[in-house]
Nucleic acid binder design. Structure first.
Lengths: 217, 217
DNA sequence: CAACATACAAACAGGGCTGTATGTTAAATC
DNA sequence: GATTTAACATACAGCCCTGTTTGTATGTTG
């Protein structure tokens, strides 16, 4: 029974939503197409009509909800005149808060974090790598600006600051998402990030260059 | 053709070694017993003789090589008189170095990091949780001692410092192990940890005059 | 040295899952 | 309004994998 074009897009969306739920619960590798189909209220035929195979379905799922890193960093880059460090901290805080409220993003990030990435999902993996690389570059750019603005301790380099921030956020998310959400990610995350950013800025005065306050010219 | 008892233990070890390699390459869920058997130079019969099923084989593999967290922290707790913070930093550095040299630990940690933990491996998962919990408690103990010793900035609590350190190490390892080992984990890890520990200690001196120049507008 | 237990190998049964091929119906198209 | 085609449902073939069972040769024990 053929449906209209609009309805087809709708079922495609339903399939993606179902895949998200099923992949989240069973893991990408261990979820069968039949389960996804049942969860979506269709048969496997519908899935194989819209997607060639599971890895392509997975890829489409990843693309369907862009992780907000890009947008946030783009916004960060758009405002070059303000305090880069404070802006960055605010953006990270907003991102964590967004994640804490958006269950869909939580599921997709969980799937990505614990996905196997071996063999069949190689293309998904490389794509994720590319995103991460761009993400890192953007982070480094912002930190470089913060250094230029004289707001960061010179013991940090753009690379080291970006790496540390990334590792911490990644660890935070992994801990929260993969290990049962046993703490308040907004509160503890904000706190941890705040401390980290304070230590980005903090040491300035301690270093050899004792030229007063970091911002007070 | 029955082998002797000693030889049986040997084949059991061979199976574990093969499982480690195969699980590392294909992921725990996607590796078949046949592949493990071939890699070990035996048939599936041997595996099913020594282990009931795959999840038990996986569990045995996890138990066969204890991750060194426990030992290191035990050593840390044994020396209460020294500078707790410096000792901790040294231990973390040693751990990273150990990991960088020991390919077996790398494989097992990789397997654990990207393992699915859903459904069939629930018991492995809870066991890992227990280990992590004990790990966290030990970390907090050491940081509490560092605070008592007056070596840490009071903006940190034992919990927050332990969480931050854990998140960072976890993120570092995940980045290195799961994403192609594209950087020198010893150098960058040591550097990052060093900076983190410096910022643990750093603010002490600043705390009194902290409100002097927060942003400098 | 006979009898039993052990440490496997080899064969077997069964199921689930994948991908494809075919059928079917309603929407597009003309 | 007939034909085509899109959007599925259903049926099918076949593989791989698991867990079990059976066979068997060799240690081990009394």
């Amino acid at each position: 029974m053929r449906r209209s074009k609009a309805r087809a897009r709708e079922t495609r969306q339903q399939i993606l939503l179902a895949a998200e739920r099923v992949f989240y619960e069973k893991g990408v590798a261990n979820a069968s197409m039949e389960e996804v189909a049942r969860a979506a209220g269709v048969t496997r035929g519908a899935i194989y009509w819209h997607f060639a195979n599971r890895s392509e379905l997975f890829m489409a799922l990843c693309n369907s909800v862009p992780l907000p890193q890009e947008d946030l960093l783009a916004r960060g880059l758009e405002a070059p005149e303000t305090d880069a460090l404070a802006l960055m901290e605010r953006l990270v805080g907003e991102w964590i808060e967004l994640l804490s409220r958006d269950e869909q993003r939580q599921r997709i990030l969980s799937i990505l974090l614990r996905c196997d990435y071996g063999g069949e999902f190689a293309d998904v993996c490389t794509r994720q790598h590319d995103i991460d690389d761009r993400h890192m570059l953007a982070l480094e750019t912002v930190f470089a600006r913060a250094l230029e603005q004289g707001r960061m301790n010179r013991i940090w380099t753009p690379q080291s600051a970006a790496s540390t921030l990334r590792w911490m956020i990644k660890g935070l998310c992994a801990e929260w998402l993969l290990f049962g959400r046993r703490f308040d990610i907004v509160a503890e995350g904000r706190e941890g990030v705040s401390r980290l950013f304070r230590s980005f800025a903090l040491g300035q005065i301690l270093e050899s260059d004792r030229d007063g306050c970091p911002g007070g010219r």
